[in-house]
Design a protein around this nucleic acid. Structure first.
Length: 606
DNA sequence: GAAATAATGAGTTAGATG
DNA sequence: CATCTAACTCATTATTTC
């Protein structure tokens, strides 16, 4: 836990803490409130509590986001809700019971409960008692229910961290029954590895029937305080597992968030099983909407810290290879609705050959790549491609397996493409622009060097991926949005919104690099934007006074976007991969600080 | 002095193997 | 369950070139 300790020391020294404290002087309840991390044996963890001035909500309460009938209003018709779920194929009796237990307001919770009932009916010998969600809908016994939750969460964690051949045989069985492999693996991920085949098929059928994939894609980390779904998951604690579990708790620090496989987040276009609804902690719900991004493969504990600060919202991990011809594994924490997303058009090329057709002519059959690896900030050297060319020319015809292996390893490491006989080359800057979804020459000109183009592009969003997530804003803000864009870079979020056809009314963009600010400014002017672009340099200079100034001028921000520096998190960094406390990556805390200030001001002015 | 160039592994995870 | 292999990663630094 030395890591967490350094975390604490660093936080103490952060100047924003004083600001945050000033703004929340009246609110000390946070210390035992919904941001508290109970799940640790280490008391130092307490020092790492995100101090949020906007988290005045009652712990453990959830609010539904997205589904219209869940939005509040005690006056909604109970009958309508019953019909709604009966229409999904649940029995009236079951629906009535679920509503009786949870009230009619939170349809997400009701749906979860119904799915659990369905699963439990398939296996009556299970410990229904423990799964009966009798207690956790009330606030007053929140703590008790959470403690009950604890063992359960870890039990599911245990299941998942010990993959067995049992899982594979179940997948095979399901595949033989006509389901796809993806359906099978997701069902197992949803229901737990020791789930019966009947339950698995039931889950898949229910998902198809209701046209609600519902998949929790549980991050296999404890879902913190918003762990409603975990409460509803299988309770199959066997004594032997219990013992192993205890051993595990003693020996391991379970701070890691597990990445989904396949890395499709809550869903990507053209893939089955989109999760169309989720529960957000009440303190996470906007306004404003927020959207945070960083590398998925960060050092251990980073994502759980990020999630904890960002109101315990479960990160959405997505690989952009599902959107374009290059991989880009990223985590996104946001409070946007996730139903009715749509992709940016035209759909970008999805394979290397489609993206860069000229390479097809020279592509050897033994290079089986169809997708590029992550586009980074540096390119392979000419010396390297020359070495490869010489190595290939020594053999006439098909090169030896050893040579093939060497060449392919270098191709993958440096994202090389075939541009001639035995001739490999790194991507051109405009090819990187295209792969990332930016307009041609977006980063060209304006005094930027070629080297810096690679760097700026390598640090950017993949526009199609981000646009897919932001697309839900289009029908919500037909007249446009006001956006606060932190760590804007070359304006990936701005480009995404513009390509979605969402008017940009006022954009406050904060970006430390002057060449990047010039790129965004230049793009803004060339695309005939009618709104205002205000560009600032330093997020650390952003304080409550300045925020209040802009917000009173614009009427608040609808969206706060930011991808804070990854260089201390990224695997490519050989020198200073220091985690979230690294020199640049610790600017994440400024993202949180500023977002929380915006939330404060918006709440106060409401 | 800016820009280009080239060399520089570790950390983590998934899967296979024994 | 221990151990191995394979794969991948929004980068930094020193040096040379212009």
């Amino acid at each position: 836990m030395a890591y967490e300790f350094s975390n604490f020391v660093r936080l103490e020294s952060l100047s924003w803490l004083a600001v945050a404290s000033d703004n929340m002087a009246e609110n000390t309840s946070d210390l035992d409130g919904d941001n508290f991390d109970w799940d640790t044996e280490d008391e130092l963890e307490i020092d790492n509590i995100p101090l949020s001035c906007s988290s005045l909500t009652v712990p453990g309460r959830l609010a539904a986001v997205g589904s219209g009938e869940a939005s509040s209003s005690g006056g909604s018709s109970c009958t309508k809700i019953v019909d709604h779920f009966v229409g999904m194929g649940f029995s009236k009796k079951m629906v009535a019971k679920a509503i009786q237990e949870h009230g009619e307001e939170n349809t997400d919770t009701i749906l979860e409960t119904l799915l659990t009932y369905s699963a439990l009916e398939q296996s009556p010998e299970e410990e229904v008692q423990q799964a009966e969600p009798d207690n956790f809908s009330s606030d007053y016994d929140y703590e008790e229910s959470f403690l009950n939750d604890f063992s359960d969460i870890d039990s599911s964690d245990e299941d998942i961290t010990n993959p067995t051949s049992d899982e594979e045989s179940k997948i095979m069985s399901l595949v033989n029954m006509g389901y796809t492999r993806a359906e099978a693996s997701i069902a197992i991920e949803r229901c737990g590895r020791d789930c019966s085949l009947a339950e698995l098929t039931d889950f898949i059928c229910a998902a198809q029937m209701a046209k609600v994939a519902d998949g929790d894609f549980p991050l296999e980390e404890k879902p913190r305080l918003n762990g409603d779904y975990s409460k509803l998951k299988k309770r199959k604690l066997l004594d032997s597992k219990q013992r192993r579990l205890e051993k595990r708790i003693m020996t391991e620090d379970d701070e890691t968030i597990r990445l989904p496989n396949p890395m499709i987040g809550f869903g990507v276009p053209a893939e089955p099983f989109q999760r169309v609804r989720r529960d957000l902690p009440e303190s996470a719900i906007g306004p404003p909407y927020f959207y945070y991004e960083n590398v998925a493969l960060a050092p251990k504990g980073v994502w759980s810290t990020i999630s904890r600060f960002l109101y315990d919202v479960e990160p959405e991990f997505v690989d952009s290879k599902y959107f374009c011809a290059a991989a880009r594994k990223r985590g996104y924490v946001h409070n946007l609705p996730i139903e009715n997303r749509f992709p940016l058009l035209p759909l970008p090329p999805r394979t290397i050959h489609e993206a860069i057709p000229l390479t097809k002519k020279w592509w050897p059959s033994w290079d089986t790549r169809t997708k590029l690896n992550c586009l980074q900030t540096c390119i392979g050297s000419a010396k390297l491609t020359e070495r490869i060319r010489k190595a290939l020319e020594e053999s006439d015809g098909e090169p030896s397996m050893r040579i093939q292996k060497y060449v392919l390893d270098e191709c993958r490491k440096w994202n090389l493409v075939w541009v001639g006989r035995n001739k490999l080359a790194p991507l051109e800057p405009d090819e990187v622009e295209m792969l990332l979804g930016f307009p041609r020459n977006h980063t060209r000109g304006g005094g930027i060097s070629r080297t810096d183009r690679y760097k700026s592009l390598g640090n950017s969003f993949q526009v199609d991926t981000v646009a897919y997530h932001l697309s839900v804003l289009k029908e919500m803000y037909p007249n446009g949005i006001n956006m606060l864009s932190l760590f804007s870079g070359i304006g990936g979020a701005e480009v995404a919104l513009h390509r979605l056809g969402i008017p940009l009314k006022n954009v406050v963009s904060v970006e430390i690099s002057e060449v990047n600010r010039n790129i965004v400014r230049s793009w803004w002017e060339q695309t005939n934007q009618r709104g205002n672009l205000i560009d600032l340099a330093d997020v650390q200079q952003m304080n409550s006074d300045r925020l209040e100034y802009y917000m009173s001028k614009f009427g608040g921000f609808d969206l706060v976007v930011g991808g804070s520096p990854c260089n201390n998190l990224a695997g490519s960094n050989r020198h200073h991969r220091d985690g979230l406390e690294g020199k640049e990556s610790s600017l994440f805390y400024d993202y949180f600080r500023i977002l929380d200030l915006v939330k404060c001001i918006m709440t106060r002015n409401q």
